[in-house]
Write a protein that binds this DNA or RNA. Sequence first.
DNA 1: CGACTATTTCAATGATTGTTGAAACATGGG
DNA 2: CCCATGTTTCAACAATCATTGAAATAGTCG
Lengths: 127, 127
Amino acid sequence: MSGAADAIKPEVMKQLFHPEIEDVLPADVFAALGDPIRLGILVTLADCDEVDKARCGAFTELASPSLLSYHFAKLREAGITRSRSEGTVRFLSIRREEFNRRFPGLLDSVIETARRDPSVPRIKLDV
Amino acid sequence: MSGAADAIKPEVMKQLFHPEIEDVLPADVFAALGDPIRLGILVTLADCDEVDKARCGAFTELASPSLLSYHFAKLREAGITRSRSEGTVRFLSIRREEFNRRFPGLLDSVIETARRDPSVPRIKLDV
DNA sequence: CGACTATTTCAATGATTGTTGAAACATGGG
DNA sequence: CCCATGTTTCAACAATCATTGAAATAGTCG
């Protein structure tokens, strides 16, 4: 429109839906946890969360890209994770503080449960 | 077979399947918890578990008998509850000790989570 | 712009789920 | 034995789920 070059464009990829934490229902949370791949994503995130640098593309050992995207959406829509875009890459993290406020103590025991169990697949993120 | 009258017949209703607690997988547990009616059954049981006198028929506020039976089976097959028959009636209880041994701390935070949330239906058992 | 990479979306599929109502089964009591 | 009661099973159904592969989209870099 104006003659000025739109040089400084803040990288804003399409925003994905994240529910308000108050709107998250327990049954939906548990349903989201009821799949081994998603539990694998969760424990992998939990073991990497301190750096907050878990690229979506780093999970390909768990499933194909498109299937991963499906499972990422399930976790995100259940209020468990947050997806943040940075340039061409998308990062995934656990909504720890919010989730702990909404369901105190639940996340820790879920993660511990999943972490302890060999049926839950996990990968080593190369951060 | 023998001429003796089979007078003393211990009341044995058809045995329902209960998995060994070691065979229970976290993903199946969470899937079983991923339904509001089943969470309602669980918190109702939790609030009545001390007496261990929760008749299956006492849950009819939550759903129809046949639907209840379906949800009871889900909880049972996920290793969360135990169904015990006594004459014509069936009683339901939480497999607390076993479950706590298998997944330490999980059950308590699940029950707390469900108990706190108004989206989980609950009933008052008339014991 | 055009090629390239990362990720999501779409369409299609078979499997599983939650629900309903009718039928079957088990037990106890006349 | 027949009946009443409590509970499960069965058959059906629409809805959702997990999975696949191809296509679309967003951003980066030449």
